[in-house]
Design a protein around this nucleic acid. Sequence first.
DNA 1: AACGGTGTTTGGCAATGCAAAACAATAATA
DNA 2: TATTATTGTTTTGCATTGCCAAACACCGTT
Lengths: 261, 261
Amino acid sequence: MSETVNVRRGSFVQSVDRALDILESFGVDNKELGVTEISRILGLHKSTVYGLLNTMENRGYIVQNPSSGKYRLGLKLFELGCRVEKSMDLKKITDYYLEMLRQETGETVHLAIMDSQEVVYIDKKEGLESMRMVSQVGKRLPLHCSAIGKVLFAYLDQDRIEKIINEKGLLKMTAKTITDPSLLKEELDEIKVKGYAIDNEEIAEGLVCVAAPIRNYSNEVIAAISVAGPKARIDSGKLEAVKESVLQISQAISDKLGYSG
Amino acid sequence: MSETVNVRRGSFVQSVDRALDILESFGVDNKELGVTEISRILGLHKSTVYGLLNTMENRGYIVQNPSSGKYRLGLKLFELGCRVEKSMDLKKITDYYLEMLRQETGETVHLAIMDSQEVVYIDKKEGLESMRMVSQVGKRLPLHCSAIGKVLFAYLDQDRIEKIINEKGLLKMTAKTITDPSLLKEELDEIKVKGYAIDNEEIAEGLVCVAAPIRNYSNEVIAAISVAGPKARIDSGKLEAVKESVLQISQAISDKLGYSG
DNA sequence: AACGGTGTTTGGCAATGCAAAACAATAATA
DNA sequence: TATTATTGTTTTGCATTGCCAAACACCGTT
């Protein structure tokens, strides 16, 4: 894991920063953590963690399991998360089109945006087939290893692309992940020309995705949509049709947002 | 607004507590706030707020609008919110049944649980009619003024009921809100006997709801579901059918959770 | 050009957060 | 069952750190 060292700009409050560290140490795999456990993970003293944890528990951001004494994330975070979501009217606008895209392709469809140099999945609708891609809303991924990520990556300024590659690196996820900076930059250029991106098992083996950008009234790329499915099913002649659907729907959403391309 | 003064137990970190105050000051109505604005709301010094805000911005919990200079909640909160949600497998289990309940009744259906003496809406599915109740997932409400809240309220211990009434009070939302403690307690008793609750314009005028409890394997009430719609439509003979549907579905979900009533 | 309003930076005092150690209560060991 | 290890929790005191105040820089309005 390449820890990006934040350059602290302006005044900085240590205890708050640590509190956020604590919140983030609760992953999807480790839902419940103890005081000592967290203190080990973060390299902080037990009593320090306890104080922070206690403060957040009093506010409902953390809850303690009475029987085990361990802690987990509280519903207050769910509440705030929903407030953020609510302010994203993008989700409302795209909902209808995403459903259409799912119906057309039968596969899992996604809506994602970029946030602090990463892809964040905002919405998804699962495919109709029994074997389908299962992903999760709210998840973050690096930009370089998915169709949706590469689309968002491609439309950035050249120096930002450079900067992100340098800072984040290009983590190898599968044998086919593009880990060479110059190859990636070629790929991104090509994506801009074609107007869509394909992920051919670059993030997970057997998974193929097609993604296209969403533009707004000022012609900026503000989000992207994708269709994801098993290689076997997509590759067998379906790819072209999926590509057309993705392009058509992304265009429709962009139109709705006032894009005039 | 009756501010519940938290009795600070154990060690307490002031700056973290204040940081959470800041997060919560971003409501659904005021999505964007400035430093000065927040400092006024919370009664803190401008530079104090700035430092806290800055710390959270560096971590993606707050984002600044570059043009206006104002702040709003960041996507990191959405991400954490999703992690909490993910740990709630209750939502997954009920999804199918909620959809069924919506189809049967044609009205907006809800799933909610209790958290720190309040109702939290975990999931909803909007009604099929053009005029329908619009609510929001993640929202918190007091326990006494909705069908779903009263159900969750009813199955608590007598002393907890007493405690919550004393601490939170019974805020009047409409002319029909039950604000008399002894009347409410009678109502709660009745709900336990009948096994369902009705909200007859107690939270909003023209809104009628029917709710029933969800029980788990140890026969505890862990959640509740409800159907909500306009009084005109529900009252006109439909109430009985809605009530039956709610009871039937809540029973089905409870069965799924291992309830043996 | 002066004003009122932002967000931001700086400096210095002391309040506050934090580490160390002791405590209590449970779980795992023999 | 006695013993050890490991948990969450409380207390204490030192100095780090957070916070207030005031000044700064910027913008839009008057």
